[in-house]
Design a protein around this nucleic acid. Structure first.
Lengths: 106, 106
DNA sequence: TGCACATATGAACACATGAACATATGAAAG
DNA sequence: CTTTCATATGTTCATGTGTTCATATGTGCA
């Protein structure tokens, strides 16, 4: 490859930090428990215990994973009495998962 | 939540195996070295050494990661003489990364 | 205030994973 | 067929990650 083209390719690469963040984001999707939780929230918001019951997971495990999803800004939450209701944060989440699904279902 | 609604939600969940595969797919995107390689291939196909030079990675590391990308069917490859040229497998890859980028750049 | 319920957090453990190094395979040229 | 170049593979090691169990926080109600 020519030196000039090589340099051009290099220029088009996003900053390392951006690519790092991108990988961090996908890492969050890269666990079946978290994917299950996200999918469960596709239909409607759910509280922690509902998610745990629905997916046959421990409350602790769900809570831990929800924290990771929360930190990645993939889910929102609101309090209602003693319960915390979680929901998908935005439509990017749906879009990303749907794209992944298309690839998987080939 | 009512028992009936609970059951309905359960029905809409994709099979465990599908969700497992989905998570496995995202896991592949969840490493900055692999994301860099995929991004490098956005513009055009590249051989192993070109990728290594472009990203300042060892040949071994690139090869290992390419194998993972290959197994996940995210990249194709063809031989040309002694070199192996890799390229993105389909447009899902671009779409998924682009979606992720949108989320990251908020 | 005291108790029960819902969720969050912390620590420990088992397991997965990426990087680095050495080595093997495979193709082309002499 | 031997050498060289390009790539692939195997192994080791340090680090990261998810789950479980125990415990803490927080809310509502008697």
């Amino acid at each position: 490859m020519e030196e000039r083209e090589f340099a051009a390719l290099r220029e088009e690469m996003p900053a390392d930090e951006v690519l790092y963040d991108l990988a961090e984001l996908f890492k969050v999707f890269g666990d079946s428990t978290r994917v299950k939780i996200l999918y469960a929230l596709f239909e409607r918001e759910l509280c922690v215990q509902e998610i745990a019951d629905l997916l046959s997971l421990s409350q602790s495990s769900v809570s831990h994973q929800l924290r990771i999803l929360k930190d990645a800004k993939l889910v929102r939450f609101r309090r209602e009495g003693k319960s915390m209701y979680y929901s998908l944060d935005d439509d990017h989440v749906r879009a990303i998962i749907s794209m992944g699904m298309e690839h998987v279902e080939e």
